[in-house]
Design a protein around this nucleic acid. Sequence first.
RNA 1: GCGCCCUUAGCUCAGCUAGGUAGAGCAACUGACUCUUAAUCAGUGGGUCGAAGGUUCGAUUCCUUCAGGGCGUACCA
Length: 498
Amino acid sequence: MLKQIINVTAGASPRERSLNGRLMSDKLRDDRIAKLEKIKALSIDPWGRRYEPTAPIADIRGMYHDERPVPGVKVVGRMIANRRQGKLGFINIQDRTGIIQGMMRLDALGEEAYSLYKLLDVGDIIAIEGELGTTRTGELTIFAEKLIIMSKSLRPMPEKYHGLRDIEIRYRQRYLDLISSEESRRTFINRSLIIRHIRKHLDDDGFIEVETPMMHTVAGGAAAVPFTTHHKALDLDLFLRIAPELHLKRLLVGGLERVYEINRNFRNEGISQRHNPEFTMLELYQAFGDLDVMMDLCEALVSGCAQAVMGTMKVTCDGQEIDLSPPWKRIDYADALEQYAGIDFRDEAAVMEAARKHNIPTDGLSTIEAADKVFGVTVDHNLVQPTFVLHHPSALSPLSKVLDDDPEIGIRFEAFIGGIELANAYTELNDPLEQAERFKNQSGGDPGALDGDFILALEHGLPPAGGMGIGIDRLAMILLDKQQIRDVILFPLLRPES
RNA sequence: GCGCCCUUAGCUCAGCUAGGUAGAGCAACUGACUCUUAAUCAGUGGGUCGAAGGUUCGAUUCCUUCAGGGCGUACCA
């Protein structure tokens, strides 16, 4: 056993060594275990039981009015600061809603409880009960008459003044980040509120939330590299889904008419400030809707989230003021390309010249695909205020209907905010014969082209529909002013430490 | 994948330019302290300086490789 630990530790990275160090005994931990034993020796269970506080700390803070003390208040949370001075001490207790000070006096607590108090460490989870009032300096305080330990912490907390600066530990040990950073707590609570608002809006609008498979036999609905896995009993190779689109449309065929799914997609591609291999997507389909309905819905969802969660439709993102109130700007794909790159996507010479200028390799790319790459590097970052880019080349949009008077143009939009591509929507193609043709003509061998089962579904009759996808992580980034997707994902993918 | 940068005590950071085996604050431990809030005061302990190899009498410091991380870039209808 010992040998094993030594082997693991030798040649390790500092984090790894540190993590193993954290798992092995060290002096700080030994000190706390010694205290744990002393607490047990007092016939006190250091691991706690069910406990019902008077209220969350934020509410308790609101209970004090007109300098009238409130007796018998119960508070529970993590002790995040301890200032002891002989027979008196002050502690700060934090729960999910806030922080409150407790005053621990020997003569109020009694010998036994005060002995327990002296064995506490910053990081322990405790409950205190007593009168809510203020100290001489006016600080709102629970004057403890009773102390209960709920959980002993055997590890030291991050440094209290600077907080947790190490970005890697913030991701790997997110709980430490959440304990020590109010900012981080608020971000993830707000992310949850954003999703809650979206669900409520769609539910109220007659949509139903559904769950479709994460494991696909055909990775369709987008053009991304999938993760692969294998089902043993069926001896079947499977793909983690890159998009739920083809299944959700099957549900429209089935008559559910308004469906949405908020769930993970998986794409086996690079990790960046805006990409995590697994990310959360809202995808929705509305029978008998179209692109215009989707634009209205997109504006309503995003601006409604901002209003509901941030209390305003004007947010700041990366130092830029963004006004999310509808209606948003609209620009044609071709016009945007003309305006920001100075090219026509049908002009091969101009497109290839522009690609060269921006160091975009064009091997194996069609003119339109190359033009879209140019679009990515010239247009995206300019679309700071909410903007719908409309009417992409149909070659780039195989699942959308096309314009009556120009079959080379798809009825599609992408919504950009703060230079980030946030949403993608179509008036959905529901002609099964044309859909089969479009898949066949797809360049690059999109595996979705092989999804005969999807075509079979369309042949049973897909109602005309509008459909839209909104990247939830990116929406959270925009509304919560985070420039890193990792800062809105609780556990972003990192290499394992060992 | 490619380029540049980073890795020193549990945490936050100095030190390395010009090689002589390490310091501070917080945290911890001992003591004092019944209105503190980055509490204060006195004292103590804690590091094979990310790993391996090389140059050297001598490497945390210079070189090479590797690991992890960061930033940029590429891939990403």
